[in-house]
């Protein structure tokens, strides 16, 4: 079965317009030891849109996100079954290089985690390890460009040598986004990027997600349904390891097909 079939199959399962698909997951099961955390999830991540994963805590949405750049490999006892493709390549195939995969599928975490280095070094880190800059000048250009894209340049351009940990929480999170952008990824995964931030910082990140959309395929996990409604075009609702419903955000929030989705969106549980 080739990648196109997968993409078709996934697309067929959801009513909607034809999309340019970046990542496709098919029948994904994830186990932590004997416990199954993800049960047969099939989903697609479109190229030019933001996909939101919502659901009550412990439903597996973060776990699923981490399978998309194989961060679950770092958890001992974790096992992934099924088929996940990036541009048609199986990312769990032995020929897939995990280092390159993670460069192409960047990630932003729940809590801002800048390295205890200078702002410049934080952004330059990924570029350095992947050898993406051939000169100091190019490196500076990449750092500046990434910080500008992350909307942080104006705030930090005069203190690039200050420690990244000295920034405020919202700035730190934008620094982490800049850090991810600097490696020139194709997909950016965001794992509840605003859960540790105040409303103003959250608004800035959301605005930033808007700006980044179109340039990168974005998947965002959030427990905040308003946020999902604000930033995403597609929404996937997870419950107890199952993908309950997946579709256009506007449709999902106005007219959910499943009762469980409806209950969750209307605040019955979660």
């Amino acid at each position: 079965m080739n990648a196109q079939n997968f993409a078709d199959a996934a697309t067929d399962s959801t009513a909607g317009t034809e999309r340019d698909i970046k990542m496709v997951a098919r029948d994904v099961n994830v186990y932590y030891g004997p416990k199954q955390a993800i049960k047969g999830v099939s989903i697609e991540i479109p190229t030019d849109e933001v996909t939101a994963f919502i659901g009550p805590s412990g439903c597996g949405k973060s776990t699923f996100l981490r399978t998309l750049n194989r961060m679950n490999d770092t958890v001992s006892g974790a096992r992934v079954e099924g088929d996940i493709r990036l541009d048609g390549e199986n990312i769990y195939d032995s020929s897939m290089d995990v280092v390159q995969l993670r460069a192409r599928v960047g990630m932003v975490f729940q809590k801002p985690n800048p390295f205890p280095k200078s702002i410049f070094e934080n952004v330059a880190y990924g570029t350095r390890i992947h050898g993406l800059a051939s000169s100091r000048g190019e490196m500076e250009q990449i750092v500046e460009q990434s910080l500008k894209r992350a909307g942080l340049w104006d705030e930090v351009k005069d203190r690039l040598n200050d420690s990244g940990t000295a920034l405020s929480g919202g700035q730190q999170q934008r620094l982490c986004i800049a850090r991810a952008i600097a490696v020139d990824p194709e997909v950016i995964l965001m794992d509840e990027p605003c859960s540790a931030l105040d409303p103003i910082a959250t608004a800035k990140i959301e605005e930033l997600i808007h700006e980044l959309r179109g340039r990168y395929a974005i998947a965002i996990v959030t427990h905040n349904m308003q946020q999902a409604a604000r930033v995403s075009q597609r929404t996937a609702f997870f419950h107890l390891g199952h993908l309950v419903e997946y579709g256009d955000t506007s449709e999902m929030f106005t007219n959910p097909r499943e009762q469980r989705t409806k209950d969750y969106i209307t605040g019955r549980y979660g």
Binding site: T74, V99, R102, G106, N113, F115, P116, I129, H130, A180
Partner: peptide
């Protein structure tokens, strides 16, 4: 989260150790 942050950018384990964890 430091380790995760570095690994998620595509650093190898040894790069993560030498450039993030040990410093």
């Amino acid at each position: 989260s430091m380790r995760d942050g570095s690994l998620a950018m595509g650093a190898t384990t040894s790069e993560t150790i030498r450039k993030v964890l040990v410093p």
